[in-house]
Design a protein around this nucleic acid. Structure first.
Lengths: 161, 161
DNA sequence: CTTTGTGCAAACCCTTTGCAAGCAG
DNA sequence: CTGCTTGCAAAGGGTTTGCACAAAG
């Protein structure tokens, strides 16, 4: 993009993420800090739904000085930058995931092991629009979560999401 | 049902609700109290999505001695009896609604006025099952919320849900 | 009487915030 | 240097819970 981003990264396929983030930081006069770097790197590395506490534990292994509040603040920053989505499948606790602009999807959650799968279905989306039209709504978004049991043999009750 | 329910009600079309509730109370050796009566009556009378605080305010007009905790406890009791559903459209706050066994529906929420409409669409349900099948899940439930703007002229920003 | 229910306030859980000290720019 | 950031702990907001008293069965 513009010359060079200060946050280094080895993973080319995540370059877009760092580019957007760095642009956002500069635009908002925010700073690139050690803590933000670690939190974002681990968040990207995980590449799955994760809650703040889990991410905090992971980050602490690399840098024990990072506080939970900073993890929350960084995740909220990513949300504001449009780089992360926040969901709450289990009531009272949020999970975050990387927002990939070109990839809308809904979720399928296993009630036994907590596994979260993603899917997309254009027919469903189209029907949603029809429903909204019929009821006189201008649809701007939706949330579709399917709940059930995955049939994998390694589905462990109470496993970590 | 069994002879006679002690909780009286004038509204015949809600009789099924009181019957189920009384049966549940007896079966669980729970008691019929003045507070439960008032909370449930007002909940039924409203017949819309309501949160605990709102319901508490309404109940207090009839009986100022009823505490918020009792409202929560009563709503949870109804949930356990299968008579109420709990949803959380706005993050961090739950709303409750009467669960009508024969009437499954999803929700359409106006982001301006908070109005909640209900709809059902069998095509969508069927597609959900197809998706779950394809991904190797046994589907047991789902949640579909549509978000948008209602086109009514009386749509007031920040109106009460 | 025995057991469950209630009101109150305190506890909880997750998340946010105030503040003084720490750093990036 | 200036002002955004951080860590810590305290505060917040909705919901639950412990306790002693009230009340249903």
């Amino acid at each position: 993009m513009t010359e060079k981003s200060n946050f280094p990264t080895n993973m080319d396929h995540d370059q877009w993420f760092w580019d957007v983030l760095n642009a956002y930081l500069i635009q908002q006069s925010l700073k690139q800090t050690r803590q933000r770097k670690v939190v974002v790197e681990e968040f990207l590395k995980l590449d799955r739904h994760v809650d703040a506490e889990d991410l905090h534990n992971i980050v602490r292994k690399r840098d024990p000085r990072v506080g939970l509040a900073t993890v929350y603040r960084t995740l909220n920053l990513l949300k504001e930058a449009g780089l992360a989505d926040q969901k709450s499948f289990r009531d009272g606790r949020s999970v975050f995931e990387v927002h990939r602009p070109d990839h809308h999807h809904d979720h399928l959650v296993c009630l036994d092991c907590g596994k979260i799968m993603e899917f997309e279905n254009e027919e469903i989306e189209s029907l949603q629009n029809q429903v909204a039209d019929k009821l006189g709504f201008k649809l701007t978004g939706h949330r579709l979560d399917l709940y059930g049991h995955c049939l994998k043999r390694n589905c462990m009750p109470d496993a970590k999401v």
